[in-house]
Simulated assay, not measured.
Amino acid sequence: MNQTLSLSDQIDLQIRTTGPISVATYMGLCLTHPTKGYYRAQNAVGADGDFITAPEISQMFGELIGFFLVNLWQQMDEPKPFTLLELGPGRGTLMADIMRVACRAPGFREAVQLRLFETSPVLIAQQKQRLAAYDAQWIESFDQLGDTPLMVVANEFFDALPIRQFVRKDDGWHERQIGLADGQRVFGLSPTPIPAESMPPAAADAAPDSVFEVHFASGEVMSRLSRAIARQGGAMLAIDYGYAHSQTGETLQGVRNHAFADVLSDPGAVDLSAHVDFAVLGGAARQAGLAAQPLVTQGEFLTRLGIGERASALARANPEAAADVRLAEERLTSAQQMGELFKVFCAHSPGLVPPGFVA
């Protein structure tokens, strides 16, 4: 493909040459094109980016996850060494807060091998600056993880993995595709139906024109990491917006400058994401032999880990910032803000008891 063309022109050329493309192909090109994808060129995270993640709201988020990881490491009899992997580490804020707290535990700093899975050169540069003290290494493949016990953190990672969409018609399910009409990108349907029995059970009783999103990429990533954890011991913690049980409904969305944007406009400049089907993650984990905790909301998880007590301590230590601390706590835990929308998933070696999942 001609690399001198804009990403928009490259996508249109591909459609003219080979025909309509799937939603998954479109998402992949928009987000991870080698030179023009969103995560290759954009400064996505933060007030000056397109969206703000929980670690950017308050240090409390990362500090409590640091406590969570130390607790599991101690339950595992403090293996030395072990690997701590973050998927899609953003600006490095979450891991910096995790490490600041976790390294207070005797032996943790000496035992941890920090690995980061990231595709954005812009974000890698910021991560290197924030995590310079921890001998971090950046990986491009899970094959680079080695064979030590493995703990994985993924905050708003799975929502950015490509999905496929299918629409129910009278003659079966048709895959949604992206083509061109009058020179503009538009959604359409593949003319070839997929028999209803080929779809997951959750789609069996779907009404006409229902949309079902299939998360093949999420399932593959979860399967690979779950098999590694099953062999080596450890846990996966994933925090994202999504749903507990596979269901119909369209969730693909575009965000730019903290506002919703047309998903077909300006490829490479708009963040694309979809709600996570946590049933897919849980199924992949259990198939590999891991235990999976019942899904909890972010508000429940942080409250059980002690965010209220941590907020009080920060407010006492910094009275001038007390109001901001309480606002951050509310934003992270309130049902009207991030507390209900975001869910927390944990899969782990049998026998571990992850904190935050038992009332």
Results as ranks from 00 to 15, higher is better:
S349G: 13
R100F: 06
S22G: 09
K36R: 13
G188D: 10
G28T: 07
A125I: 01
P195F: 14
V152R: 01
V221P: 00
V280M: 00
Q336G: 10
E320A: 12
S223L: 05
H245A: 01
F187M: 03
G234D: 06
T251K: 03
F212I: 07
Q113M: 07
A279R: 05
M151N: 11
S141N: 14
I239R: 00
G356L: 11
S312C: 09
P79R: 10
E140F: 03
F157S: 01
D143E: 13
L302R: 03
L272P: 04
E309V: 03
P294L: 08
T4H: 11
F82M: 10
Y26M: 04
D262V: 12
G283Q: 11
D170W: 08
L327C: 10
A230S: 07
I52Y: 10
D143S: 15
K128R: 13
R168W: 00
D48Q: 14
A323W: 03
N155Y: 05
S223G: 04
L116W: 02
G242T: 01
F108N: 10
V186E: 06
G66C: 11
F117M: 10
M199K: 10
Q232W: 08
G28F: 08
S265Y: 02
A238T: 10
E220Y: 04
Y39L: 11
V153Y: 00
L237I: 07
E78S: 15
P208V: 09
G28R: 13
T83Q: 01
I194V: 14
L5A: 05
S273M: 01
T303A: 07
N43P: 03
G308M: 05
G49R: 02
R109Q: 14
T35R: 05
S190V: 00
V152M: 05
A284I: 04
G299S: 12
L290D: 11
L264A: 14
I178N: 05
Q14H: 12
A102D: 04
A269G: 04
L31N: 02
D171N: 14
W173S: 08
L252N: 02
T119Q: 08
G356R: 05
R115K: 15
A285R: 00
F108W: 08
F51Y: 14
G282L: 00
F187N: 08
G219W: 11
F301Q: 06
T4G: 09
Y134M: 02
G289V: 01
R316P: 01
G351C: 09
G234I: 08
N318P: 03
L189Y: 00
G306Y: 08
L13C: 10
G254Y: 03
L64G: 00
T17W: 10
A154W: 11
G339L: 09
Q298W: 04
I98V: 15
A196T: 14
L189R: 01
S58R: 13
E250M: 10
T119H: 02
A41W: 12
L84W: 13
L314Y: 12
L69C: 06
F108V: 06
L341V: 14
L72V: 09
A328W: 06
G146C: 09
R304F: 02
H215G: 06
G88Q: 11
T192I: 15
L84P: 15
S226Q: 08
R176F: 13
D240A: 03
N155F: 05
F278C: 03
A259F: 08
S226R: 12
A47E: 14
F51M: 15
S120I: 14
G179M: 09
L84V: 15
L341A: 13
G282W: 00
L29A: 11
G37M: 04
V358P: 01
P191S: 09
